[in-house]
Simulated assay, not measured.
Amino acid sequence: MIKRLCCNGLAMLGMISAVAGAADTSAGFMANYAQQSGVAVSALSPARGEALYRSEHRGRDGKTVSCTSCHTANPKQAGQTRVGKRIEPLAPAANPGRFTDAAKVEKWFRRNCTDVLQRECSAQEKGDFIAWLNQIK
């Protein structure tokens, strides 16, 4: 019995490691961003991620903007760009394709952070943001 428990525990640990090491999963992105920022994945903060999403900033045109301006207050809902194009939900629970392509993830973080914050997001901010979205069910 103990042998079976140990084997099952090792198998589970192996599966968790494989998911965390996968490049194009939300867990993989969180691990990469945590490593880039020099913190443990457990130090990523869903609360900071949500605060980043909801915080308002002065945009390029002087108007107040936030992530919710295009993505809605509920990340499980579809949003809309300024020109009316549909944006699929941000939350992986509502959009399983979210955080599955590294090039797209980096492209959209760069573009959206620059639009809203007038700067690129830090690795820690990206990790916090994904940590928050991952907890939404």
Rank of each mutant, 00 (worst) to 15 (best):
M1Q: 09
K3N: 12
L5I: 15
C6H: 11
C7L: 14
C7G: 05
N8K: 07
N8G: 15
A11T: 10
G14K: 01
M15T: 13
M15W: 10
M15Q: 12
A18L: 14
V19M: 14
V19P: 00
A20M: 12
A20N: 09
G21A: 10
A23N: 08
A23T: 15
S26T: 07
A27W: 05
G28R: 00
G28V: 09
F29W: 10
F29V: 09
A31H: 08
N32W: 08
Q35H: 13
Q36W: 03
G38W: 04
V39I: 12
V39C: 01
V39N: 03
V41N: 02
S42R: 11
S45L: 05
S45F: 14
R48I: 05
G49Q: 01
A51G: 11
A51Q: 13
L52W: 00
L52H: 00
R54S: 11
R54K: 13
R54F: 05
S55L: 00
H57E: 13
G59F: 06
G59W: 02
D61R: 02
K63M: 08
T64E: 05
V65A: 04
V65D: 01
V65C: 04
V65H: 06
S66N: 06
S69A: 10
S69P: 07
T72W: 11
N74H: 03
K76N: 13
K76W: 05
A78M: 03
G79N: 05
T81S: 11
T81R: 12
R82Q: 12
R82P: 08
V83E: 09
R86E: 05
R86I: 07
I87E: 03
I87F: 09
E88D: 12
E88S: 14
L90N: 08
A91R: 00
A94T: 02
G97M: 13
R98E: 11
F99G: 11
A102R: 11
K104L: 13
E106R: 15
K107W: 03
K107N: 15
K107D: 06
W108P: 03
N112V: 10
C113N: 06
C113H: 08
D115S: 15
L117A: 06
L117N: 06
L117P: 08
L117G: 00
L117Q: 04
R119W: 04
E120P: 00
E120T: 07
E120H: 08
E125F: 01
G127Y: 08
G127T: 02
D128G: 06
F129Y: 10
F129I: 01
I130T: 04
A131E: 09
A131S: 15
Q135L: 14
Q135P: 04
